[in-house]
Design a protein around this nucleic acid. Structure first.
Lengths: 248, 248
DNA sequence: TTGCCTAATAAGTAGGACAATTGAAGGCAG
DNA sequence: CTGCCTTCAATTGTCCTACTTATTAGGCAA
């Protein structure tokens, strides 16, 4: 009952120190506090400043290096690599991007990518889906309709439905993309329902997509997906504009 | 003078130990030697077996963990995560996949992804490309025609051309995808020209794509890209079949 | 000016020690 | 016998300290 900070997704609950440090430094980098080409403080200094061991710092730096953010050389120090070399499709990186204020250009890129990948995936899924997957999609939509998209359960069902569609393509690279995109889309959904109440009921479109996949109609599946994403983008754009208004 | 193994691209030239270990263990994991769900040897044991310090092992494990391959917990050890949680869009992971024998299903997924992303990107690029980018593409194609695709220079020019197309979309997520896909495609190209001599001259199709982008004709750009990838896939499939024949 | 050589510096590696966590064995009560 | 609880031990997590290696800046000589 009295468990403080349990339903606060922003606060981490007892993660290893190296993961914590990696997260904080990763956010600092992707939000521009350490711009590409600049050097990070030395390992000793970072460790001393945070009161932790150098090994922890090094493990964190290795993690960020594995994501393409950093490059370390003796004597030269640790440099932030050029943005083009970052592995932006990394789920952590995506999430960290949205920790700062959302860059409008990045959101645009994200929806553009969705508009490229997901309609094509829906086409594929309409052909390759199994009956079992179809049933799972049906159930996810039921859950979604039951709870509504304003609730965490409903949002989870939404995510599950879209993930199922990607998964049905039998293409593990597309599934991997789904995880990445999904983590980012979660953010837009949260903001959408935080700032405006029920902008539109997306259930009819979702059902349309489901019906197309059930009927194994690729063209209809594509059309339904395009509609879905386009509307989501429009809604998000409205929110972003509203926020910019409020800020300006 | 006496510097052995200097011009061997397969062998790493003095990389840090932690990167070396991460690479070797990463390959062992993605090629199935440590299957998902299984536990790795303990950190002490790995260190002792390889004759290195545990700190080096831990840094390597953190790198693999950052790519979604591992999950470590006290007492429970370090477990290989489920394949669905791997970050397959990571360039290193992609490269490591091809260190073993190429999984046919994975190659299929790769070309399917290319067929989804690159034609759409070409459409975009045809509209958004700048004159400077167009000129760079032209030069890359000239280099490609000059050296031929059988040479490293020609292959580099090919990569550069495709990268330029993606870059012209002004979408950094697509660019990031390009790096990933490109690193994998490099493998297929190498094999293609190692096992069969000049299966087909791809220059006309490349020029067709260039002309479409120059004319800002999205439909033509899409069509040309589809042709390019389809032919590359057919050629690769033939090689894979040939290799399977030779193996069986 | 140019080239080499030295020295300073920061990352890389090693190795040991202890703490924290947690899964599992074993004991206790029902 | 069953199920909960305690205790234990194994493994990762963290810290420390020393040393090594690579790299570059800057001095020195030609």
């Amino acid at each position: 009952m009295s468990d403080p900070a349990r339903d606060l997704p922003t606060e981490a609950r007892r993660r290893p120190a190296h993961a914590q440090v990696a997260r904080e430094m990763g956010i600092a980098i992707v939000t521009g506090r350490y711009p590409p080409g600049s050097n990070l403080p030395g390992e000793h200094e970072i460790a001393a400043r945070r009161g932790i061991a150098r090994s922890v710092v090094r493990e964190a730096l290795r993690m960020l290096g594995a994501k393409g953010l950093l490059e370390s050389k003796p004597r030269a120090g640790t440099r932030v690599r050029d943005r083009a070399e970052w592995n932006l499709l990394d789920p952590d990186l995506l999430a960290w991007m949205f920790e700062g204020e959302p860059p409008a250009d990045f959101v645009r890129s994200l929806f553009q990518l969705r508009l490229i990948v997901e309609p094509a995936a829906a086409e594929l899924a309409a052909v390759t889906r199994t009956p079992a997957q179809l049933a799972a999609m049906d159930e996810a939509l039921d859950q979604m309709a039951l709870h509504g998209l304003a609730t965490p359960e409903g949002q989870a069902a939404d995510q599950r439905f879209h993930h199922l569609v990607l998964h049905a393509t039998q293409n593990e690279l597309l599934v991997s993309l789904a995880v990445t995109i999904g983590s980012a889309v979660r953010w837009t959904t949260i903001y959408k329902y935080r700032n405006s109440r029920h902008p539109r009921d997306p259930m009819p479109e979702h059902r349309l997509l489901y019906d197309a996949i059930a009927a194994q109609d690729p063209a209809a599946a594509r059309a339904a997906t395009v509609t879905l994403i386009t509307e989501a983008e429009a809604a998000t754009a409205a929110i972003v504009a509203q926020m910019a208004e409020g800020a300006g």
